[in-house]
Every structure is written in C-alpha cells, then in structure tokens.
Simulated assay, not measured.
Amino acid sequence: MVSARPFQAVVRNPLYLQVAERIREAILSGGLAVGDALPPERELAEQFGVSRASIREALRALQAQGLVEGKGKGLVARAASGLLSEALTHVVRLRLASLEDLVELRCVVEAAALERAARRGAPGRLDAARQALEAMCRPDVTVEAFHEADVRFHIELVAASGNRAMHLVMLAMRDAMSRHLLEALRAAGPGVMRRLAEEHVALLDAVERGDAEGVSQRLREHIQGFYEGSVVAPAAAVGR
C-alpha cells in the first residue's frame, strides 16, 4: 500500500548554513588546503551574493565545527588532526573511553605503522626520527626537551610508514595524551628517561633492519611498559 504522504517537505536552510556548507566542502575536498587563509568577509559576501552578517554566522558555525580557526582576517582552514585530537580528548575527559583504551589504540596503530615502515625499507624517511633521538640522548636534556623529542620521534616513525591515515591518527593521539606523558616524565626522573632513550634506539634499529615483527613487539613493550607503570596506574590512584 502506497503511503498517502511519501515525500517530506523541502527544508530551506538559512543562507548562512548554505554558505558554511560550501566552505566546509571546499576544505574537506582540498580546494582550501590546511593553513590557507580564507578571503575577507567582504570578498566572501560578494562571492556568495549574501550579506556580511550571513558570512559571519557561517564562519562562526565552521569555527564551532573546528574546521576554521583564528580571528578576523586570520581565519584559516584547520588541520584534520586538530579535529581528531579534540574528539579523542573529549572522549577521555567525558569517560566514554579510558586512558588505558587510548594507550591500547595507540599500540595497535603505531605497531602497524612501524611494521609497514620496516617493510618499506626507506632509510631517508628516518632522518627526522634520528635527529629527535639524538636530542633525547643529550646528557643535559631537560624533561621538557626530552618530551618534545620523544613525541617527535614517534610521529616521524609513523610518518615513515607512508600511511597518511595512520599519521593523522597518531598526531591526534599525541595531542590527547601529551599532558599525561609530560607529567609522568617529570615524576619519573633521569633514570627512566635514559631507559626510554635506549628503547628508542632499539626501535629505530629494528625499523632500519627491516625487522617488522621485532619492531612491533618492541613497540608494544615500550609503550605499555611506560604507560602502565608511569601514567595509567598513578592516574587511577588519583581517581580513587
């Protein structure tokens, strides 16, 4: 039996939502690259044939979605990693997933990326990771400098996999977990930092030798060992 009303009424979106959708599509399709500055309000109003008030509303909507950032003439298209990191941070803070869950997710993604990097055999792609490792091994390295180099080391190893999606997810997890890592390093002391640096040496060596299975196992032990002992357990104790 055919319904007496098979169609829904057409929804007429406000002009600012139509403008926001077109700019959003330009960002997501790559027409506006990450970091590109958006045209001024007046120019956008002329291009879309709408008022500047509609443009301002559209830009506010896009900022709320995390697709543009900045103020006034400094509005630019935002990186997807920023959206992912905010989402992951909210997930943890709202307790929709635990920090332990995020650590496990990182292990899965990074282990797969390092296996891929080891199989690719691309020494030139590891130069940035090697530089970060050298910074970690300096005898006078501060906790903050070690933390920055540590994060950069892992990001560069994942980038060496050549998988852009893995790289973006890793960037997002870096931002979501960075505070926990830095606090744990401050509490751990120089001995732990030396051990972590030695483990990084072994990770880089395994990737360079093409030891895909070995680097995956080392990575899991490295990540889980540090977070279970220095981040997750203390955080759980504080929460009790």
Rank of each mutant, 00 (worst) to 15 (best):
M1V: 04
V2A: 11
V2M: 11
S3G: 12
P6T: 00
Q8I: 12
L15T: 13
Y16W: 10
V19L: 08
R22N: 06
R24S: 06
L28K: 02
G31R: 15
L32V: 06
A37V: 12
A37T: 15
L38P: 04
P40I: 00
R42C: 00
L44Y: 05
E46A: 10
R52D: 09
S54D: 14
R56M: 11
E57N: 14
A58G: 12
A61W: 10
A61Q: 14
Q63D: 08
Q63P: 06
A64Q: 13
A64G: 11
Q65P: 01
V68C: 08
V68R: 03
G70K: 07
K71L: 14
G72V: 01
K73C: 02
V76K: 15
R78S: 08
A80S: 12
S81D: 12
G82C: 05
L83M: 06
E86N: 05
R93N: 11
R95A: 01
S98G: 06
E100G: 10
D101E: 11
L102G: 04
E104K: 06
L105E: 10
L105Y: 07
R106P: 07
V109E: 01
E110Q: 13
A111W: 12
A113K: 03
L114T: 12
E115S: 05
A118R: 02
R120I: 06
G121S: 09
P123S: 08
G124N: 13
R125S: 15
D127G: 04
A129R: 11
A129I: 07
R130W: 03
Q131W: 08
A132T: 12
L133G: 08
M136A: 02
C137D: 13
R138F: 03
V141I: 09
D150L: 00
R152M: 04
I155Q: 15
V158W: 02
R164T: 14
M166Q: 08
H167W: 15
V169R: 08
V169S: 02
L171E: 14
M173R: 06
D175L: 07
D175W: 02
D175F: 06
S178M: 01
S178P: 00
R179P: 12
R179V: 06
E183P: 00
R186K: 15
A187T: 10
G189D: 12
P190H: 08
G191D: 13
A197I: 00
E199K: 03
H200L: 02
H200R: 01
A202E: 11
L203N: 00
L203C: 00
D205L: 09
A206M: 03
R209N: 01
G210S: 04
A212N: 03
A212G: 07
V215H: 02
Q217R: 12
R218F: 00
R218D: 01
E221Q: 15
E221A: 14
Q224W: 07
F226H: 06
Y227C: 04
P234L: 10
V238T: 13
G239R: 14
R240G: 08
